[in-house]
C-alpha cells in the first residue's frame, strides 16, 4: 500500500519537479561559460570599472591607476547583492550589509562577507579584453 502510494507520488512529483526546474537547468548551462570577450574594454580609463555579465552572473572589470587589470565576480559572498567599485577608496563595497573587498585580490576585508570574490583571468588585447575563468588544481 505504502509502495503504491510512493510510486504515485513519484510519478506525479517527478514531472512537476522537472517542469518547475526547467529554467533552472537552462540557467545552469548559461552559467557554465568559460570566457567572455568585452569589445573595446581595453579603452577603459585608469581608476574606473566596467560591469558585465559572465554567463548569468554580474562581474566587474577594474583598470587600476597602476595600469593593472583585475576582474572579479560582482556578487557579494554574504547575501548576494551586486557590489560596486569605489575608486576613491580603491576597494569594492556592498551597500546591503556594508561588506568590503580588496579591489586587486577580491579578498574580503571587513564586514560580514565570509569569502573572497572569485577572481577571473584578464587578457588585454588591442580592441578587446578577454575574461577567462581561472583554472584550479
Amino acid at each position: 500500500m505504502g509502495g503504491v502510494g510512493l510510486a504515485y507520488a513519484a510519478a506525479i512529483g517527478y514531472p512537476i519537479y522537472r517542469y518547475l526546474n526547467s529554467p533552472v537547468e537552462a540557467s545552469i548551462q548559461m552559467a557554465a561559460v568559460k570566457d567572455v570577450t568585452l569589445p573595446d574594454a581595453d579603452k577603459l580609463p585608469k581608476g574606473s570599472a566596467l560591469m558585465f555579465k559572465f554567463g548569468i552572473r554580474p562581474a566587474i572589470l577594474i583598470h587600476h591607476q597602476d595600469d593593472s587589470w583585475v576582474s572579479l565576480d560582482a556578487i557579494c559572498t554574504h547575501m548576494g547583492c551586486t557590489v560596486a567599485y569605489d575608486p576613491k577608496k580603491d576597494h569594492i563595497h556592498c551597500a546591503c550589509h556594508g561588506g568590503t573587498y580588496d579591489a586587486k585580490t577580491g579578498e574580503n576585508i571587513s564586514g560580514p562577507p565570509p569569502r573572497p570574490l572569485t577572481k577571473y583571468v584578464v587578457a588585454v588585447t588591442p580592441g578587446s579584453v578577454l575574461i577567462t575563468r581561472a583554472q584550479h588544481g
Binding site: M51, P58, A74, C81, T82, V83, A84, A95, H97, G98
Partner: peptide, 25 residues
Amino acid sequence: LMPAPEGIHPEWYFMSQFQTLKILG
C-alpha cells in the same frame, strides 16, 4: 549589473530580523 543602492533596507516588518542578522554578522 547595477550595484545595490546605498541605504538599502527591507520593509519595516523585516527590519528587526535584518538588524539582528547585521549585529550577529
